[in-house]
Simulated scan of single mutants.
Amino acid sequence: MMTKQPLLITTGEPAGIGMDVVLLLAAEGKLQDSSRPIWVLAENEAMQARADELIAAGVLTESPTWQTVAAPIDIAEFAQQMSSLSIDDKSEGTGGNSSENHSQESHNNAFTLLEVNCGAPVVAGRIDINNAIMVARQLEVAHQLAANNIVAAIVTGPLQKSALIDANIKLLDGTMFSGHTEFFMQQSGCDKVVMMLANQAMKVALVTTHLALKDVPAAITQDSVRQTVQIVVDEMRSNFGIDAPRILVCGLNPHAGEGGHLGMEEIEIINPVLQEFIAAGVDISEAMPADTLFTSRHLESCDAVIAMYHDQGLPVLKSHGFGDTVNLTLGLPYIRTSVDHGTALDLAGKGGASATSLYQALVMANEMADKALT
């Protein structure tokens, strides 16, 4: 039987809880639930130090074991190496709290660590912008591995956007680093991708993502609304198996513009596009007031909600399942899911972090990857 392609986890900001939640799932044996190999991007020394801190905090009883491989520079060479050699042959070191771990068989290791070295020593809970290059490098490697079909999906841990901005890390177009979504969109050469967050209560997609509120109205164009709706419809069909998705759409303004008295965007921009989809047979609403759309009466009869901006839709969604929510990027040429939480610097290395969101992100990535094989 052919081994399934791995799921790749980026641990993100090393001072945050990205490594903590990986170690927690590894200790619980949950990384193996997908029946796929798990690859993790991090620094080996920092991962071992974090495991030791969690043991000292009483969160772990012992360190999980892992195999360490240098993160690839030449992707084609790396792919050939990983397919032709055993994990033990490739290993450059093994994590865990015993030197005997190196002799263990690969299936006893919780994951394979693809090592990306930090620029400065990692202190849990303390941001050091000298490590920003390492965080960006994780994302570059993840994109290359996914774009070259070496991994089945990317599952991203939390990063600290302010640290990357302060370190002058730029996106491909030269603008400041604004988030995972924009990074993977530009790296993939996509004109438009859609951020969607999903939990048991609802799925919410966004027309705009990480913009200052004052910049949102100008970003609500017919093209941006049209592209968002089309991507959501397509991916609800392909990734979620819903052939005829029922979609509700928030207006931009209070009361969806109140017939033009509180804004004209619904009349001039949003509804004309939605009418195009309605005429084409898509089960989609016209712009609705957000304060009434997000009620059980409406949500129970829809498969997805499209909100106009970040804090219109996500606070409601997270209030119904923070910690159980998965962040998806729709419209990429590969699968990307993510945790729904931040770096939680105050919890790093101390215990108290929940690995539930990472687990749900892995489950969803695995399900979507399996569906892509059918």
Score class of each variant (00 low, 15 high):
111 F>D: 02
133 I>A: 14
134 M>G: 14
151 V>T: 09
95 G>L: 04
95 G>E: 01
135 V>P: 02
143 H>M: 02
110 A>I: 12
103 S>V: 14
135 V>L: 05
138 Q>P: 03
118 C>K: 15
111 F>E: 02
127 I>G: 06
99 S>L: 15
111 F>H: 00
99 S>P: 14
111 F>Y: 08
150 I>Q: 01
149 N>W: 08
102 H>E: 15
132 A>W: 12
125 G>W: 10
149 N>H: 12
98 S>F: 07
147 A>Y: 08
150 I>M: 03
126 R>T: 13
118 C>I: 14
129 I>F: 11
118 C>S: 12
133 I>T: 14
152 A>K: 11
144 Q>Y: 02
145 L>T: 00
121 P>C: 03
110 A>V: 12
108 N>F: 11
143 H>Y: 10
124 A>G: 03
147 A>Q: 08
104 Q>A: 12
113 L>D: 11
109 N>I: 08
104 Q>R: 15
148 N>W: 09
106 S>L: 02
110 A>S: 15
108 N>G: 09
146 A>Y: 04
121 P>M: 07
102 H>G: 15
127 I>N: 08
139 L>P: 06
122 V>C: 06
103 S>C: 12
111 F>P: 05
147 A>E: 09
117 N>Y: 14
116 V>Q: 02
144 Q>W: 00
145 L>H: 03
132 A>V: 09
117 N>P: 13
134 M>V: 07
138 Q>D: 00
126 R>C: 10
93 G>L: 01
125 G>R: 10
144 Q>I: 06
127 I>W: 10
132 A>P: 08
108 N>D: 14
136 A>D: 07
152 A>H: 06
152 A>W: 00
97 N>P: 05
143 H>R: 03
111 F>A: 01
123 V>C: 03
104 Q>H: 14
138 Q>M: 07
101 N>R: 12
105 E>R: 13
138 Q>W: 08
119 G>F: 03
119 G>W: 03
115 E>F: 07
150 I>E: 05
92 E>C: 12
126 R>L: 10
95 G>R: 10
96 G>N: 01
114 L>I: 06
98 S>W: 06
134 M>R: 13
